[in-house]
Simulated scan of single mutants.
Amino acid sequence: MAQDEGGGQLSQSIAGRRTRIMTGAALSAVLGLGACGILPRIGPSKGEIYEGSVLRSGDAFVVEVNDRVTRATAVVPALTFDRHFLAAGAIGADTIRPGDVIGLTVFENVEEGLLATGGAGAAALPELQVDESGFIFVPYAGRIRAAGQTPEALRRIITARLDEQTPDPQVLVQRVAGDGASVSIVFPGAGSSVVPLQRATRTLLPALAAAGAVPANPETAQVTITRAGRSRSVWYDELLREPALDIALRDGDAIVVDNPPLSFTALGATGAQTQVRFEERTTSALEAIAQVGGLSPTTADPTGVFVLRNEAEPVAAQVLGRGDLQGAQRMIYVLDLTRPNGLFEARDFLIRDGDTVYVTEAPYAQFTRIITSITGAATAATGLPDTLAGG
């Protein structure tokens, strides 16, 4: 029996030694993984982002946000028409074009006239369509060019032709609905319309009104016109405010009224990691954070709010105070919400379409994750001898 007890104590001693060795190995492994950054985490640390600066080993400019940077980057995307569109004059409302339909009434002062027979005194030709070459055919007057004429000018031409064959003819010319000059207006996802260019629809705004073009969100809606292979866009709300943007239209113009997918991406220690659509043309960094549920109360580092953006050369040059930049630059703007004016800076700093807002984890959160991994590994290592013994 003594030998059995001694043997049992020896087995327990060996098992305990194994436990300590295995626990130590597990702790060393977890600590090693934590030091190497292999443990699961939401993204790069603040130090790793700073390492991406051009001053170190990266290719991005890391800039701390202040009042000067906020002013330099407060650039709302500008959209406007160029001279090609702005300089185009309004087309005469009465100008006849190929595809238009002309109505003629001819009055004659004889009982049996050329066109008016049976004592009617007048003959009606209600639908004469202007062909693709711009001509119409009038009996006894022949083929007459109508395109480019006003109804009054066309009336005089037809009267002169008929006057050679009937005494003192009186001619009435009217334009009626036809498939002449028109523009197409498209609302992606909501249909399209073809609007004829008439007296009331010679410019952009009346044509949109005639088509019922009311965007779902006027704040972010754009109006794009394509003419002769050239496309230009304006913001819908600016079109309503600026009379100069109510440009003259041309036959064949293609107009698209749409809300483009303006958005930013939120990542890191925020309430949600997602892509967020703009409700307005721009939003502030503070509003962007609020839209994704704010900073995570258990993991976020309020000193490490980063905004990643490809900045246009003129803006980047002004932010960095440099004149040697070429092309768009990768910029990382840093917001520290714990500074005395940090919240004001975040409120004033504009987020633009395509930006990425990334919030780093607090060092405490990383430390807690390592400790949790250590305690979990230690527990598993402690129970391993029992598992082996039971096997």
Rank of each mutant, 00 (worst) to 15 (best):
G92Y: 02
R281A: 15
A25P: 02
P126S: 09
Q165C: 02
V194H: 08
A72G: 00
D301K: 01
S13D: 10
S184W: 05
I370H: 05
E345F: 08
G323C: 10
V334A: 12
A146W: 01
I21N: 00
T360H: 11
V171C: 00
I91R: 00
G148V: 11
P363V: 08
Y140P: 10
D336V: 14
A210C: 03
S184R: 04
R241F: 00
V357C: 03
T387G: 03
V76E: 13
L245F: 03
L172W: 03
G383W: 10
G134I: 07
R56Y: 10
V183P: 04
R41Y: 02
R352C: 07
E311W: 03
E287F: 02
Q222P: 06
L208P: 13
P314T: 12
G271K: 06
D67A: 05
L350H: 03
M22N: 15
E108Q: 10
L33I: 05
T105L: 12
I255A: 00
P215F: 07
A285C: 11
V110Q: 11
L343M: 15
Q318K: 15
G229M: 03
A346R: 09
A141G: 03
F85Q: 05
Q318M: 05
L240N: 14
S373L: 12
T338N: 13
G229I: 02
G99H: 01
I136N: 12
V63T: 09
V138Y: 07
R232W: 07
E287G: 09
A266K: 11
T224D: 04
A124C: 08
D131I: 04
F349T: 06
F81G: 13
I38D: 03
G16F: 15
N259I: 12
Q318E: 15
V186W: 05
T368I: 12
A116H: 09
R250M: 15
P243N: 04
D253L: 09
L240V: 14
A312G: 14
A211R: 00
G134S: 14
E287K: 00
T387S: 06
N217W: 09
I371Y: 09
G189R: 01
V319H: 13
L162V: 07
E238D: 11
D386Q: 13
D336W: 10
T265D: 04
I351A: 11
R347V: 05
A389W: 05
A381E: 02
E48P: 00
T379I: 01
V214P: 01
S13N: 05
L295C: 13
A153C: 04
D59Q: 08
I144T: 13
L320D: 10
R97P: 04
L39N: 11
P215N: 01
